[in-house]
């Protein structure tokens, strides 16, 4: 692996990390606006307010950074970085097309799940360090939610690994075939739902429920650091959608020209899923925290276990 090659890979991943979340964010602005029969910001940049996000970014960058007086200063300042960087690291192993992957780890799936889990630590750190009751509650809720939904996430991922017989993400795509949509369908839904819950996206946004606890862990944040949390949320959407795509929807596999257009198929699927994420936000009311736990433990975990069992049986029967 030469120096140039390495540099290229890093730059590519970094660029994707900076652009894709913005695209998703822009999509959310517009899609939500239309779904709710309103226009949304239309002025910045001219065409449909395309530069609104950039304007937001500039605004955030100029705002004052206020640290509450009782806060744990170091942790308070570091939390946004901890929330953000894991998603960057996960992007490294996600394949865009055949051979088009920055790093093809043989335990890519394991790596992705492991690093993904670190992200929530940012919320917990933020919640704890803020010295604010709302923030603490939010942090607690977010940790509890992570814990509840991590298990179905991991179990369905294991189901896929079992179906493919490998933990390598490219390997999984290689082993994928369309009928997986059928027998891994339950797993796909569980994985996607659990992923949403980990990101605190509505309807699983109890940790940041503004009507109860302002902004949860982020209550005390302002300026760039708050923006980082926002960026982390959208990066998270990208990562979760991309993982769902890779694991359950065949990644670069499309109707034709996989070799050439693989990247396109991947991106299409990712954005389609991202659209679903936005769609869910506008469609469903927020779940209460007990409903959240109930869904995880009494629906998703048993289903995921069943899915795992089903996968195993089918593998044995087929072989």
């Amino acid at each position: 692996m030469g120096l140039l090659d390495t540099g290229l890979r890093l730059v590519a991943v970094f660029v994707a990390f900076l652009t894709l979340p913005l695209l998703v964010g822009q999509m959310e602005h517009k899609a939500m606006a239309h779904m709710q029969s309103r226009l949304g910001p239309m002025h910045a940049g001219g065409f449909h307010g395309w530069a609104q996000l950039i304007a937001d970014g500039v605004k955030f960058a100029q705002k004052e950074h206020v640290v509450p007086e009782h806060a744990d200063r170091t942790i308070f300042s570091l939390a946004p970085a901890v929330a953000l960087l894991p998603y960057l690291l996960v992007l490294l192993v996600i394949p865009l097309g055949p051979g088009l992957v920055a790093l093809d780890l043989d335990i890519g799936l394991f790596y992705a799940l492991a690093v993904l889990g670190v992200g929530v630590l940012g919320s917990v750190m933020a919640g704890w360090a803020s010295a604010n009751k709302y923030a603490l509650l939010g942090g607690m809720r977010s940790a509890a939610q992570l814990m509840a939904y991590e298990l179905p996430l991991v179990l369905t991922a294991a189901s896929v690994a079992l179906a493919a017989g490998t933990l390598s993400l490219t390997g999984i795509i290689g082993a994928w075939s369309p009928w997986w949509l059928l027998w891994q369908g339950t797993g796909a839904v569980i994985f996607f739902v659990a992923g949403l819950a980990e990101l605190h996206r509505p309807p699983f946004d109890m940790p940041v429920a503004d009507a109860e606890i302002i902004m949860g862990p982020y209550t005390e944040y302002t300026g760039l650091r708050f923006a980082f949390f926002l960026l982390a949320e959208y990066a998270g959407i990208v990562v979760v959608c991309a993982l769902t795509t890779v694991l359950f929807l065949g990644g670069w596999r499309g109707p034709f020209l996989d070799a050439q257009l693989g990247w396109l198929w991947t991106l299409l699927k990712v954005f389609a899923l991202a659209f679903v994420v936005v769609w869910l936000r506008t469609s469903y009311p927020r779940l209460r925290s007990d409903q959240l736990q109930k869904l995880a433990w009494q629906v998703l975990v048993p289903l995921a276990l069943a899915q795992l069992a089903l996968t195993g049986v089918i593998r044995v029967v087929m072989s």
Partner: peptide
């Protein structure tokens, strides 16, 4: 589960 899943097949 993961080590098992990979060698299972």
């Amino acid at each position: 589960l993961f080590p098992w899943a990979t060698v299972f097949a």
